[in-house]
Write a protein that binds this DNA or RNA. Structure first.
Lengths: 231, 231
DNA sequence: GTACATAATATTGTATACAATATAAGTGAA
DNA sequence: TTCACTTATATTGTATACAATATTATGTAC
């Protein structure tokens, strides 16, 4: 099989999943939004079978809630759950940076630095949704570098949920300092300084939590608007 | 709706999932076993739709591996992955007992003690497969008591995978001392002694790892034999 | 107009049918 | 035999059809 064919070949179920995932993470689909199956079939051009597959997967990643006979909705973590999520991230990511300090190669550092730059360029363009998504990708890459598959798996869901939390509860600007924090974190990891890296990570995650107030409720969005670019 | 109807009403997709899950966790389905979809439909009396739903869910819990166009197989973690899993459990369960120490009620202690007793009775009857499953349920209940949903979610998969690891790599007797360890752990949690509880948990998980050698390969099993009690 | 019951519609749940791919069986030549 | 190649079979991937449930609309009594 040619490389071009490999690149062209689109994996239908993954595509539907990715589109939905991106739609949610980029904040085009607000927490609580109902995800109607037939609407999604026409938007993505696949049958309900694949839509339901994607929705189930998103549910198991805790990004979507499915209520029996009622349908799927973009998850809207309660304040209590939100704090549980941030605590879980704290625990896992501290362990992750510890491992990353031991295993990070120069190639890894380059890639992580590149991701920081991409995040910053999104911030410079005022595209905070993209910046938020890229920030999550940086954290996930750190877990990949750490070389622990279960941590990667758990963090994938937790990071996505954190994006939802920030969408719902953060009163802006709270994560504008993210760039510096990511850079400081990477510097510590790159130097293999576990003590410093853990401190940076704890500080960074603390900032995210501090930027939320957990008293206001979220606004919804509608499906067609979120995927208007497709039709 | 009557209570009896509620109890009778079986949730078909959950049933298929549970049967498979139990089959794997109780070691009737050995790691690596192929899970043929049509065979499962006749065994469970539901259509491939629900079988595939169950398999996908098990895949996302890392208990089953699905290879595109090749089918589903009971997961068989490599020695390297096995160690990553045990490390992840170590990290998360230490945090769990910490929380459990703060939140454990007398009712929780009773329930946990009951689960220890059930595990012990399985050991007394020589049913190590059931004992192993009950041991996992004890650990999961501890996470529920701790009140952190993401930890529960992550541990559900990790504990299941640990069962597979023990099936594949443990040279017996290694977890015979589990009862005492669980009891000591519960005592510490019940007393709210975080220091002691963490130490017990670390010791307990260390024992599991120490009981494995990671050099031998697993044996397979066939489907019809594993579910012979159904037909 | 409100409240309730009933019918019409829409949406999800499950099973089946068809398509695509992989596996196994057969066939012939070296 | 063994290898390659072709054909047949089995298995998975996807779409559709039908069933069950929920939501909305309609009508009627008060």
């Amino acid at each position: 099989m040619l490389m071009s064919e490999l690149l062209m070949k689109h994996d239908a179920p993954m595509d539907a999943y990715r589109q939905l995932f991106d739609g949610i993470l980029s904040q085009r689909l607000a927490p609580g939004t109902k995800l109607n199956e037939v609407e999604l079939t026409v938007l993505f051009g696949v049958s309900r079978t694949l839509i339901r597959q994607a929705l189930q997967r998103l549910q198991l990643e805790q990004v979507v809630e499915i209520h029996k006979n009622r349908g799927a909705f973009v998850a809207a973590p309660s304040p209590d759950l939100a704090q549980q999520i941030l605590l879980a991230r704290h625990t896992i990511e501290l362990a992750v940076v510890n491992l990353a300090c031991e295993r990070c190669t120069v190639g890894d550092v380059e890639q992580l630095q590149h991701m920081i730059d991409l995040e910053q360029s999104a911030i410079d363009q005022g595209d905070m949704a993209t910046a938020l998504r890229r920030s999550g990708e940086f954290h996930l890459q750190l877990a990949i570098v750490a070389g622990n598959q279960p941590f990667v798996h758990a963090l994938r869901g937790l990071i996505s949920q954190t994006s939802l939390i920030i969408t719902m509860y953060s009163h802006g600007g709270g994560n504008a300092c993210a760039r510096d924090e990511h850079s400081l974190l990477l510097a510590a990891v790159s130097a293999g300084d576990q003590q410093q890296a853990q401190q940076q990570m704890a500080h960074h995650l603390g900032h995210i939590a501090a930027g939320c107030d957990f008293t206001q409720s979220p606004q919804m969005a509608n499906l067609k608007g979120a995927f208007a670019h497709l039709s």
